Simulated scan of single mutants.
Amino acid sequence: MHSPITGTAAGVPFTALPPNDDGPAPLIVTWHMLDAPRSDAAFAAALPMNGLPAWRVHLGMPMRGERMADGSTAAISELIREDALMSFLHPFVRQAAEEFTAALASIRAQLSVDDGPIGVLGGSLGGAVALRVLAETEIPVFAGAVVNAAIRMRSVVDLLSDDYPYDTESAKAVDSLDFVAEAGTIAGRSPLLVVSGELDHPALRTDALHLVDALGERAELLSITELAHPLADEPGIEPAPQLPPAREVDAGLTTWLRRHLTETGRL
C-alpha cells in the first residue's frame, strides 16, 4: 500500500491516497467534517477506502487543518457567535464549492488520474459541499455519497443557534442550501449513497431519510447502528486509528463506489 501524498491544489490542501496499481486511475474527491475527523489527513485515516482501485483525494476545508487560524478553532467559534449562518455556514460551504473547479484542474495536473467522471463524498458540512457540487456544477460525476450530512442547512442552524433571527437575505441563503429541494437536479447528475448514523442528531437523521425518499431509485440509505455524528475521537485533527463504526461506513462507501465504477466499465 502506497503512503499518503500531501500537497496543495490551487491553494487547497489535500491528502491523496494512491491506488495500488500504477497508471491513470479514477478519482474520488472528499470533503471532511467539522467534527472529528476535522482535517483532510484525519478524514483520510477514518475513511481510507483502501479497497478502491482509485485515487482518493481528501481536500481540506476552509479554516480547517492547515488553514486553521492560529492552529485553533477559536476563529470559527467567534464566527458562529457572530452569525452562525451568514458569517460561517453559508460562506464556508460557498467557498469550498467555488474553489473546487480550480482545485480539480490542479489535481488532474499533479496526479495520474484518468479523465473520466469523478466520485464525490462529503461528511457533515462537507456533505453540503458535495451536494452543492452535484446541484450547481456540470462536473461529470459517476457516483456520490454523503455521511451524516448537512442536507438542510436550517437543521444545522438550529443545532448551532437557538431561535435564529432570519431576515430576507438569510432566509434566501439558508434555502439555497436545502438539498432535498434540489433532489431532482441531484438525481439527474449521479446516484447517491446517503449514510446516516442511527445515533446522529435526530434532525439530520430525518433530513437524510427525506433526501433518500426525494431521490427515489437514484439513492440508497445506509444506516450505521452505533454511529453518532463524528467518525473519529477528539481532537480529530491528526490521523488516528479507524473506529469500528467508521470501518463499517468505509466498507459501505467502498462497495458503493466500486459498484458504480464497474458499471461505467472503468474497473
Rank of each mutant, 00 (worst) to 15 (best):
H2T: 14
H2F: 11
P4A: 13
P4E: 10
A10H: 09
V12P: 01
F14I: 07
P18K: 15
P18S: 15
P19L: 14
D21V: 13
D22M: 04
P24H: 13
P26K: 06
L27Q: 07
V29H: 01
T30V: 04
W31G: 00
H32E: 10
D35A: 15
A36H: 06
D40C: 14
F43G: 01
F43Q: 10
M49Q: 14
G51L: 02
L52Y: 14
M68E: 13
M68F: 00
A69I: 14
D70M: 06
S72E: 12
I76G: 06
R81Q: 14
E82D: 15
E82Y: 10
D83R: 11
M86L: 14
P91S: 08
A96K: 04
E98Y: 01
T101L: 10
T101Q: 13
A103H: 12
A105K: 11
S106T: 03
A109F: 06
L111E: 06
V113N: 08
G119P: 00
L125P: 00
A130R: 02
L131Q: 06
R132K: 12
R132I: 03
E136R: 08
E138R: 12
F142A: 09
A143P: 00
A143V: 04
G144R: 05
A150K: 00
A150G: 08
R154F: 00
S155Y: 05
D162H: 09
S170Q: 03
S170C: 06
K172W: 01
D175A: 15
S176R: 10
L177W: 01
D178T: 04
F179Q: 05
R189M: 09
V195H: 03
V195E: 04
E198Y: 05
P202M: 09
P202A: 05
A203I: 12
L204T: 02
L209V: 11
L209A: 14
H210G: 00
R218A: 14
A219N: 08
E220N: 10
S223I: 02
I224F: 09
I224M: 11
E226Y: 11
A228N: 14
H229F: 06
L231V: 02
D233I: 07
E234P: 02
E234F: 05
P235I: 00
G236L: 01
I237F: 12
I237G: 10
P244N: 09
A246W: 00
A246N: 02
V249P: 00
A251M: 03
T254V: 07
T254A: 04
T255K: 12
W256H: 07
T262R: 11
G265K: 03
